[in-house]
Structure formats: C-alpha cells, structure tokens
Amino acid sequence: MSERVDHPPLTEPTAWRGVELVVNGRPLTAQVESRLLLSDFLRGRLRLTGTHVGCEHGVCGACTVLVDDVPVRSCLTLTVQCAGTHIRTIEGLTTAGKPLGAVQRAFHDNHGMQCGFCTPGFVMTCTALSEAAERPDEDHIADELSGHLCRCTGYRNIRAAVRQALDETHGKGQTE
C-alpha cells in the first residue's frame, strides 16, 4: 500500500528508475531520473521544503537528513541510491498540533538560530546524536556540528541547545 508520487516526464533525454523508499514513515513508490538528488526529490517532488539546499557540494550541511538513522548530505546523495531506505526529514520530527520533541524544543528554548536557514540540518544531526547509544562527549559534539555552517550568528546557542537536548535524552553530562 504505497503511494505513487510520479512526476510529469521531462523533455531532456534521461534515464528513469523506479524506487521504493520510506519518507517520514510514509512508504512511497516513485519513478525518478537517475540524476535526481535526494534533496530535490524531497523538496521538489514531495514538497518537503523544510530540508534546505545551500551549497550543493557538501560543505554547508543545510540539506542534512537521516538515511536509516544516519545523518547524510541529501545534496550528495542520489534518490536512486536510497532505494529500500528509511529517510527522515525535519517534517518527520513533530506531528502538527503535538508538542515539540526534545531537540526542537531545545533549539527553541536556547534560541539556537537566527534566520533559520541552517537550522533543519543542525536539528537532524542533533537528532541522531540524541538517539546515540551513549552521550557523545564535547569533542564529538564539536566534530558533528563542524559539518554545519551558520552564517548569521555563532554556535554558542546551538551548542547550548545540543547540551539541553542531550541532558534530556541521556541525562546530565559534562558542561563547559
């Protein structure tokens, strides 16, 4: 019982492939161009525009989503490579009308953003950290956050948000 999300054919000659995958718990079957990036599939085809696209060569981290619970760059991943996987995006974290989860609430409480463009990427990486078996240490957190650029402000509030989220999911840990 999966939903079809086809796209009208394009004029440029290209190669199409059928893929089945699960996005935010929703099983999908789609015909996609081989070259369709996961970021463009999510944004253009599924209208999940919460995943932002910044640099499109893996540097900025805005497009980070979870593929089988692991944070990856959706701009450096082809949709066809994701056949059989479970994808989670920012839209999948909270149900409309329900309270925010620990990670999103921590970003809200600590004002871990300014313009918000980079935020979905940060939140997805932080979500993976919050689901890790053990609480990551400060070095590990810094390494994970180094994969995301925030051009507005700084990383102090973002780190505070990550700590608060981890305090909630893993209990109190070391602080600076």
């Binding site: 893996g58 692991v70 180094s146």
Partner: peptide, 12 residues
C-alpha cells in the same frame, strides 16, 4: 579517517 571532511560525509 577522523580528518576526512565532516561526520556526515564519512557516514557515506
């Protein structure tokens, strides 16, 4: 490996 790109890159 720890010096390659970022964790999100090394995951793939």
């Amino acid at each position: 490996i720890a010096h390659i790109g970022h964790p999100q890159i090394r995951n793939r």
